[in-house]
């Protein structure tokens, strides 16, 4: 079967949805400019040839306004897909996301809906502190946003198509190092088989990336690949790792996680976002609250440190959770 990169898979998802439904349009910076980039990461490249510049709508550099415009258009039945280039820029748009996108339905007593998608590139990638943050947790916290984190091309396409058809605001997080990943880092090849026929992936259904019996690792985006590398190494130490990629953080598939813990009794959560207040804290709290009996060991989190994202490669590599820290943490669970 043909293989696509995540960028290609996302592009195909957008094109299919735009062909299917004329209410779908893209809005964002540098997404359709002739001779431009197709967004910061090529996802919308070439789409304006087919759909024109009205439906691949380039904006000035105005993140707050663009997000509010997406909210307003969604209220009137359109289905915008907004692109802010870098997750770090979401902070410019927070008022519209948090105060309007999540609340206008509620404040209207259920009369309105806000069917919009935001595509949000995240992840440290040698760009320093302001083009590198993983901002999922801020939005997981805002009641009313669905949060999607695809780690493969197959998931990216199926989840984005579902996002476009969802009647709620959906935040789709894309990791910058995974877009066109072809071995840029060891073990990281997010290209994958994508069937040419249409498919959708429902939200709230985790994927068991690898089956194992001794410890469960929950990871998203790039961390899935670090977890796979760690699992290989741990296998040599006779520790069998089960890896769960929740794929959507809101809604979260607790059932798959709890079923895994029934088997393994040990939980390690890995995310690239800072430790404190990250989504991993919520997963840990829920498991402690509802499934503590399943555990044979303390819950561990392997996360980035509570600092800005550093630039210099030795520091960035140290900062981003990787195979070594995951292996070390897992081994500690078996050392006592």
């Amino acid at each position: 079967m043909r293989k696509l990169t995540i960028a290609e898979a996302l592009r195909e998802a957008i094109a299919e949805e735009m062909r299917r439904d004329e209410k779908v349009f893209c809005i964002g910076e540098d997404i359709g400019i002739e001779g431009g980039f197709g967004g910061a990461f090529t996802v919308t490249l070439g789409l304006s040839d087919e759909f024109g510049h009205e439906r691949i709508l380039d904006t000035p550099i105005s993140e707050l306004g663009t997000t509010g415009i997406a909210v307003g258009a969604a209220l009137m039945g359109m289905r915008p897909i907004a692109d802010l280039q870098y997750g770090d820029f979401i902070f410019l748009a927070m008022d519209q996301l948090i105060n309007n996108a999540t609340k206008l339905r509620y404040m209207s007593g259920g009369k309105l809906k806000v069917p919009m998608v935001m595509r949000i590139p995240v992840g440290a990638s040698l760009r320093g502190a302001q083009h590198a943050q993983s901002v999922e947790s801020y939005l997981v916290h805002a009641a009313g946003l669905k949060v999607v984190c695809p780690s493969t091309a197959y998931d990216a396409k199926g989840l984005l198509k579902t996002a476009v058809r969802d009647d709620n605001p959906v935040m789709v997080f894309e990791h910058k190092l995974l877009y066109g990943a072809k071995g840029r880092k060891e073990g990281m090849d997010a290209r994958g088989e994508v069937p040419p026929e249409e498919y959708l992936i429902p939200f709230g259904v985790a994927k068991v990336v690898r089956e194992g019996g001794d410890v469960t690792i929950v990871a998203t985006l790039r961390m899935v690949y670090e977890a796979i590398l760690a699992a290989e190494e741990l296998k040599r130490a006779s520790i069998s790792v089960e890896i769960i990629d929740p794929r959507t953080l809101v809604p979260f598939d607790w059932e798959t996680l709890f079923n895994s813990l029934k088997k393994t009794g040990r939980l390690v959560i890995v995310h690239e976002d800072n430790l404190t207040g990250g989504w991993g804290a919520e997963v840990a709290a829920r498991v402690a609250d509802e499934a503590i009996d399943l555990l044979d060991a303390p819950i561990k989190r392997v996360c980035s440190y509570d600092t800005p994202v550093p630039f210099s490669p030795p520091m960035e590599n140290f900062w981003v959770p990787g195979r070594e820290r995951i292996v070390k943490t897992v081994k500690e669970l078996f050392s006592s």
Binding site: E54, L64, I69, G77, M78, P80, Q96, L104
Partner: peptide, 25 residues
Amino acid sequence: MIPAIAIVGGGIPVATGIALAFKFQ
């Protein structure tokens, strides 16, 4: 009438987006 938006200036982008939808439609 959309539920009133009580963040100062918060309704201006929303109205603009509503107008964009009208143009599309």
